[in-house]
């Protein structure tokens, strides 16, 4: 039997996928997409993917000639199409208190951070606890570039092309036991490398936490790079978390320990100011910070030139990722669990 395509060209039999195989592939894809959270995600991402596919190009190139490059394939489905924040701003306007509380401090002082060798201990309620070398983590899964919005609790935001893999890839490898309900992320605290530790601003080491289902969410990114290069030190090298629907401080930098726990971890900001910072810290314009509104945000680098002070943007619920993550919080009072 010979078949013809729409243009009447003859398709050789060898190029026709047998129906069984075709169906099998389809179901495999469907199964993957329907994984714990995929079902909720696919419609949203399919639309975005469609929008982006026409102009699909390689990952964002680094404008820094001296940087160590990091190859990745673009994940258009998980990327916003908004205008990127300038590399200069992304790498010089940082909150990384281990190097000082001023946002200009990290870029100035983080050069003392030693990022190789680096290990991350994965422990707690898991079947396969293990101390991972950074090189092993880099090979967990093919690296992806994802362009996420980042909203800082202070009221500013950026759009950053991160490079990493879904944290779920690591979680699946270590196999959490039934007791694992939360994950605690412990970051480096070494006085020799980090001048900011002499300040009593926070309890060191800096600790963050996620509920297991939040950590398993495909958007939660175990991050190794940005703008096509290895993470600059001031951005949390060599490995950090990026949780785009939560305020920036939830995305712990320079992680050394990932511990699976049964009880909710106490994150550093919650310990420092429990009335101001909660465990969840989801971006939410309806829940003001005790000292300022969260209804709007300053998009860094927007305007510039003639417009020195551009008007603020409206902050979106879950930083615009509501469609993907809102179901994680069904039935929860977000004002109470801020």
């Amino acid at each position: 039997m010979r078949r013809q395509d729409e243009l009447g060209r003859v398709i050789p039999a060898s190029e026709i996928t047998p129906r069984e195989v075709f169906e099998q592939r389809r179901s495999l894809i469907r199964a993957a997409a329907a994984g714990a959270f995929g079902a909720a995600l696919s419609p949203f991402f399919a639309r975005q993917a469609f929008a982006k596919s026409a102009e699909s190009a390689g990952p964002t190139p680094s404008p820094n000639a001296n940087s160590e490059k990091l190859a990745a394939t673009v994940n258009a489905q998980y990327s916003t199409k908004e205008k990127l924040t300038r590399y200069k701003d992304v790498t010089s306007y940082n909150n990384f208190y281990e190097f000082g509380t001023d946002k200009g401090d990290p870029v100035e002082y983080a050069h003392t951070l030693i990022t190789r060798p680096w290990t991350v201990a994965v422990e707690g309620h898991v079947r396969n606890p293990k101390v991972y070398d950074i090189d092993e983590l880099l090979k967990l899964a093919p690296l992806e570039e994802r362009i996420y919005r980042l909203r800082c609790v202070e009221g500013w935001s950026m759009v950053i092309p991160w490079i990493g893999v879904s944290l779920s890839e690591l979680i699946r490898k270590v196999e959490p036991t039934g007791n694992a309900k939360y994950i605690e992320f412990v970051t480096l605290a070494d006085r020799k490398q980090m001048p900011g530790l002499s300040s009593p601003v926070l309890e060191w080491p800096y600790v963050e936490g996620l509920r297991l289902d939040e950590a398993m969410h495909p958007l939660t990114l175990l991050t190794f790079g940005l703008y096509g290069e290895v993470l600059p030190k001031q951005n949390g090298a060599p490995v950090r978390l990026v949780v785009p629907w939560k305020y920036g401080f939830k995305s712990a930098k320079s992680i050394v320990r990932i511990r699976f726990t049964e009880t909710e971890p106490k994150n550093s900001w919650q310990v420092a100011a429990p009335h101001e910072y909660g465990f969840y810290s989801n971006v939410n314009p309806g829940v003001p910070h005790p000292r300022w509104s969260q209804a709007t945000e300053q998009r860094i680098g927007e305007g510039g030139g003639s417009v020195l002070f551009p008007p603020k943007r409206k902050t979106l619920l879950f930083n615009g990722y509501a469609e993907q993550v809102a179901s994680l919080y069904t039935g929860m009072d977000l004002k109470k669990h801020f």
């Binding site: 200009g104 300053q298 680098g301 020195l308």
Partner: peptide, 11 residues
């Protein structure tokens, strides 16, 4: 163009 990344906050 040197008022940091967040000119409003800086000024």
């Amino acid at each position: 163009d040197d008022l940091t990344a967040n000119p409003f906050e800086f000024v």
